[in-house]
Amino acid sequence: MIKRKLEIAVISDVHLGTYGCHAKQLLTYLNSIDTKKLILNGDIIDIWQFRKHYFPKPHLRIIKKLIDMATEGVEIIYITGNHDEMLRKFSGLTIGKISIVDKLVLELDGKSAWFFHGDVFDISIKNAKWLAKLGGYGYNFLIFLNHYTNWCLERLGKERYSLSKKVKNGVKGAVKYINDYEKVISDLAIENGYDYVVCGHIHQPKQAYMENKNGKTMYLNSGDWVENFTALEYQFKRWKVYYYDKDKLLPFYADEDLKNMDMKDLIAAITIFEPHKKKTP
């Protein structure tokens, strides 16, 4: 398998443990790249919606794959989000090549990049967490309904359809919220002199220069693996939004050993963390 070499890959809003998570597609993506650094920008595991009866094999394979990548020398930085906020009590912890932080600043080829999930700018979460969680349950139900709608469409040979995207794009309040979110974050990045600001949270992939009277910055949002199947990639001093549905390398699938492992073996594999191994030339 020929893998694309990257300096940095950024994914967010995977929501492992929910019906909306598309773990198989994400696993395919992770197997198609050879990255030096992988930034998990929040809401990777959905602790808000977690249920003991639902954590299928493809979701476990993602955890196993991340551990394998770290073992092979990939630096993995887990930035906490609101759906996995319980991990914030472990912020600053490093185990092997995996670290947990609440935010991150990197120097990339002479430019500064500011990474965070973005929920800190969500008023509904800051002032009424119960309301945000209620909205999360409603969103999850819509995704659940959409899952079976697309199952039928695929068997009829038709394109997938996103009910949640249709609802969000058709509600003026939602559009205004997204625009305000992007502006507030970009203005703050400009004020603090960051060349790039990289976030997630709103499930809206985007790459755009944002400008005000004080300067400009590049706003980057990694989107999600529930509706859009997107990531951010940095290579050759450039950022780009990756779209899984537009990838010409879609035939690549998960490693066969991961694909064929049963539930017991997967659980055993992710609970035994091996020390870092250097790649052989």
Rank of each mutant, 00 (worst) to 15 (best):
A174V: 00
L26T: 02
L87V: 09
L142W: 00
K126T: 11
V105W: 02
L142T: 13
L249C: 00
I125N: 02
I272D: 12
K168V: 05
L188N: 05
G215F: 06
D245L: 06
L106R: 09
H83E: 05
L6T: 01
T149A: 05
N146D: 12
S222G: 06
K237M: 10
K264R: 13
K279P: 09
T217V: 13
K57E: 15
V226H: 00
K240F: 01
I270N: 09
D68S: 12
G215C: 12
G96P: 04
M86E: 13
L258Y: 00
N228G: 00
T94R: 15
I185S: 08
D224H: 04
H276V: 13
L163R: 07
L26A: 03
G42E: 10
G223F: 05
L258G: 08
M218V: 14
S99K: 14
L156W: 11
I79C: 11
A268T: 07
I77L: 09
G157C: 13
A174C: 03
K129C: 02
S99D: 07
N179P: 01
P58Y: 01
P251N: 09
P275V: 09
T35C: 12
K37D: 12
Q204E: 10
K240M: 10
Y29R: 15
K133C: 08
A208S: 13
I267M: 11
Y139M: 14
K126G: 01
S112Y: 02
D265Q: 15
N169Y: 05
L66S: 08
R155W: 10
D262F: 01
V120Y: 01
L142I: 15
K246S: 10
L38N: 07
G17R: 09
N260G: 01
Q25Y: 06
V184M: 11
L40T: 04
N260H: 08
I45D: 01
L26I: 06
K183W: 00
A23P: 05
F273G: 13
W151I: 12
W225H: 10
Y209W: 04
K5M: 09
L156G: 11
K111W: 03
D68Q: 13
F50C: 08
L104W: 03
Y139A: 14
G110T: 07
I2Q: 13
Y148I: 03
G157S: 13
E159W: 00
G17S: 11
C152E: 06
I44G: 01
A269M: 04
L258F: 03
N179M: 10
N140Y: 02
N260A: 06
A189W: 01
Y19T: 12
K126F: 04
M69W: 02
A269G: 02
